[in-house]
């Protein structure tokens, strides 16, 4: 399955947020979208998954949706979006309950995703008992439970401290090595971008346009050791973003 964005523009009232974006997202790779704050990268992700309607243009799904996928376009949110009144298992079962599965089937799915994310022992814990990193792992498990064709990740590590972020990045790399999932990953953190992205899409400041697409050919699993090479890419990305970020920073919020 492929997602393509064609001539997409979006505005909130009189403010243009995105203008004429054309992008293609391929299966089995992680595409990272970076850009200065307020450039519309999160909006782009919401438009891709149908949580908002674009003013112009559209996002399309091409090809067959993989069989057994309950929710082809599945989000992982920055603030985890776990229901505080449901346990870990309850939060995962929440997204399965609307899909006419038998009790046994959904229990099997829950146990399976909890095992895959090393969360089995937290089956009955409430979100308030978990650390931020654990909460995001639960959210990842919940996303995997609906067998997504594409993961849409909206700054999934931005609410976490830097050590937890490192740990979760390793988890994501390991997960990708095992499952080869497809993802669109929005972040403002260049370190995450070069560690996780097969390609990095750089957006300009508002109204967001695609400024450049940088492919990184180093395999994800080797990136930890080859950080020197990644440093060059990161510098290259930063040069591109610097001016934009500087200009975006000086804009008045409601101008």
């Amino acid at each position: 399955m492929q997602i393509s964005i064609e001539n997409l523009s979006h505005c909130y009232g009189a403010i243009d947020v995105l203008s004429n974006v054309n992008l293609t997202f391929n299966p089995g790779e992680i595409a990272v979208i970076i850009g200065p704050s307020g450039c519309g990268k999160s909006t782009l992700l919401r438009l891709m998954g149908g949580l908002e309607e674009p003013c112009q243009g559209a996002a399309y799904i091409a090809g067959q949706v993989p069989e057994g996928s309950l929710n082809p376009l599945t989000y992982i949110f920055q603030d985890f979006a776990l229901l505080p009144w449901r346990s870990v298992a309850g939060n995962i079962s929440l997204v399965l309950e609307d899909h006419k599965l038998s009790k046994r089937e959904s229990e099997a799915i829950i146990n399976d995703v909890l095992t895959r994310t090393n969360l089995s022992e937290f089956h009955d814990a409430l979100p308030r008992q978990l650390s931020g990193g654990m909460k995001q792992r639960v959210a990842i498990a919940r996303a995997l439970a609906v067998r997504p064709a594409f993961l849409l990740m909206d700054e999934p590590l931005s609410a976490l401290d830097s050590q937890t972020r490192e740990l979760l990045m390793d988890d994501l790399v390991e997960l990708w090595a095992r499952e080869k999932f497809s993802a669109c990953y929005v972040t403002h953190n260049l370190g995450e971008a070069v560690r996780l992205g097969h390609k990095v899409i750089v957006l300009s400041r508002r109204p967001g346009q695609v400024r450049d697409v940088v492919e990184i050919r180093i395999p994800l699993e080797e990136r930890r050791e080859r950080s020197a090479e990644l440093e060059d890419v990161q510098q290259q990305l930063w040069q591109m973003m610097r001016e934009e970020a500087l200009a975006a920073d000086r804009e008045l919020a409601d101008a």
Partner: peptide
């Protein structure tokens, strides 16, 4: 609102969102 958006993003029905997210 983030929780409601989460429900929508997982394709939950309106009724489910009201019963399982909004009411609690």
């Amino acid at each position: 609102r983030g929780l409601i958006r989460m429900g929508q993003s997982f394709g939950m029905s309106r009724f489910s969102i009201v019963r399982k997210i909004i009411l609690p």
